[in-house]
C-alpha cells in the first residue's frame, strides 16, 4: 500500500505547535514587559550583574547551532547523509555547550545567594526581585526547551541511522529543525532583555 505523505500538512502541524510555544513564552514576556515598565531603574541595576560575556558567548553558540542545523537539513536534502549526520552532532555539541555555560551562570548566581525567595534577594528592591524571578523562570523554561530540542535532534539522528529519515523523506528532520530554531528565536530575545538592558 502506498501512503502519500502530506509534507505540507506535517510542516503545518509543526508550525501550529510552534505557535503554542511562542504564546507559552509570550505570557512570560508579558510579565517581563509589565515589570520593566514598573521598575526600569531596578531592572537596569540588576541587569548589570549578569555576565555579558557569558551571555554573548551563549548567543553565538546557539546561533551557530541553528546554522549547523540548517546546514544539516540542506545536506540531507542534497543526499549527503554522512555530512548531515556530522552536522547534527555539531548542533548537539552546541546545545550541550549552551547548557554547560548556563549551568555555570546559574550556579554562580545561586552561590551568591541570588535565587527566588532567597533572603539575599528579598533584601533588595522589589524590581530586582522581579528581575531575577523572571530571569530564572524564563531562562529555566528556555533551558528545558534546549534539553527537549536536544532530545528531538538525537531522535532524528537515530532515525537517520536506521534509514527512516532519508534524502527522500526528511520531514522529521525538518520539523526537528523548526523546533530547534524556535529555541534559538526565544534566546535571541532573552539575551538583550536580560543581559543588555543595563
Amino acid at each position: 500500500m502506498t501512503v502519500v505523505k502530506d509534507y505540507t500538512g506535517a510542516k503545518l502541524g509543526m508550525w501550529l505547535f510552534l505557535f503554542t510555544e511562542i504564546l507559552l513564552f509570550g505570557g512570560l514576556f508579558l510579565l517581563y514587559a509589565a515589570y520593566l515598565h514598573r521598575y526600569p531603574a531596578d531592572f537596569h541595576l540588576a541587569g548589570k550583574e549578569l555576565n555579558v560575556v557569558l551571555g554573548a558567548t551563549n548567543t553565538v553558540v546557539l546561533i551557530s547551532s541553528s546554522w549547523l542545523m540548517a546546514l544539516s537539513i540542506s545536506a540531507l536534502q542534497q543526499g549527503r547523509v554522512e555530512q548531515s549526520k556530522k552536522l547534527l552532532l555539531g548542533t548537539l555539541a552546541c546545545a550541550g555547550m549552551f547548557l554547560v555555560i548556563k549551568y555555570f551562570e546559574w550556579s554562580a548566581k545561586i552561590h551568591h545567594g541570588i535565587y527566588p525567595d532567597s533572603p539575599e534577594l528579598l533584601a533588595r528592591p522589589a524590581g530586582e526581585v522581579m528581575f531575577f524571578g523572571l530571569y530564572y523562570l524564563m531562562t529555566g523554561l528556555h533551558g528545558l526547551h534546549v534539553i527537549l530540542g536536544g532530545g528531538v535532534i538525537t531522535y532524528a539522528y537515530v532515525l537517520i541511522l536506521k534509514g527512516r529519515v532519508t534524502p527522500q523523506d526528511f520531514v522529521f528532520l525538518e520539523n526537528a529543525g523548526l523546533y530547534w530554531h524556535l529555541v534559538d528565536l526565544v534566546w535571541i530575545y532573552l539575551f538583550p532583555l536580560f543581559y543588555l538592558i543595563a
Binding site: T2, V3, V4, K5, Y7, A70, I73, S74, Q78, D169
Partner: peptide, 14 residues
C-alpha cells in the same frame, strides 16, 4: 513506503 511529489526548496550552504 513513501512517495511525494511536492517541491522542496533547498537553501544552499552559502
Amino acid at each position: 513506503m513513501t512517495e511525494h511529489h511536492e517541491e522542496h526548496h533547498t537553501v544552499t550552504y552559502k
